[in-house]
């Protein structure tokens, strides 16, 4: 077993040297540009809502996010978001549009298995972890902070 593990390790090295490396710098520049543009577009939507509707900077986030996810639905539905993502990487995954794409793509994909078991059952198969870890970590952090405030530490 030990010698087998050894050769496995050696092979891993051997294979790694021959792997096509990920173009990290290029990927980062693309992620920066596309991610930045999505956020700028979000800012544009926010500004629009502040000027023409009764939203303040405090609560304009809600309609902005909803609008962005609406556009995500169109891009995902017409099969463009995954192409954008191959180019942009994290640039299109990290903004809230990426969260929307995770939900919407799963919903569209599993339409073939029906609305209840397919769409309903699979909608959050990718985005669920984001909600789980968001909610649980927020719960722990808020709990600690509240206790510290109540005990007068903060």
């Amino acid at each position: 077993m030990t010698s087998n593990k050894q050769t496995n390790q050696e092979y891993k090295q051997f294979a790694k040297q021959r792997e096509t490396k990920r173009p990290i710098l290029k990927n980062c520049i693309r992620a920066f540009l596309v991610g930045g543009l999505i956020c700028t577009f979000g800012q544009l939507i926010s500004t629009f809502y502040i000027h023409f509707f009764h939203f303040t900077e405090q609560n304009v986030g809600n309609p902005t996010v909803a609008t962005l996810i609406f556009f995500t639905m169109l891009l995902t539905g017409f099969g463009l978001y995954d192409k954008l993502a191959q180019f942009a990487g994290a640039g299109s995954a990290v903004p809230v549009t990426g969260f929307g794409n995770a939900v919407i793509s799963a919903a569209i994909e599993h339409r073939a298995e029906g609305f209840v078991l397919g769409v309903g059952g699979n909608m959050f198969k990718l985005a669920g972890s984001v909600i789980l870890f968001g909610v649980f970590s927020a719960f722990v952090i808020a709990l600690i902070k509240t206790l510290l405030i109540q005990w007068g530490v903060l």
């Binding site: 930045g36 979000g42 870890f133």
Partner: peptide, 26 residues
């Protein structure tokens, strides 16, 4: 700039730490 930089952090987690999108976003 700020939005772009947060995405770059995500990209580095993809490419250097080899994390899946699910892990990165979580």
């Amino acid at each position: 700039v700020v939005g772009g930089l947060i995405c770059v952090i995500g990209q580095l987690m993809f490419d250097i730490l080899k994390l899946t999108p699910g892990h990165t976003l979580s």
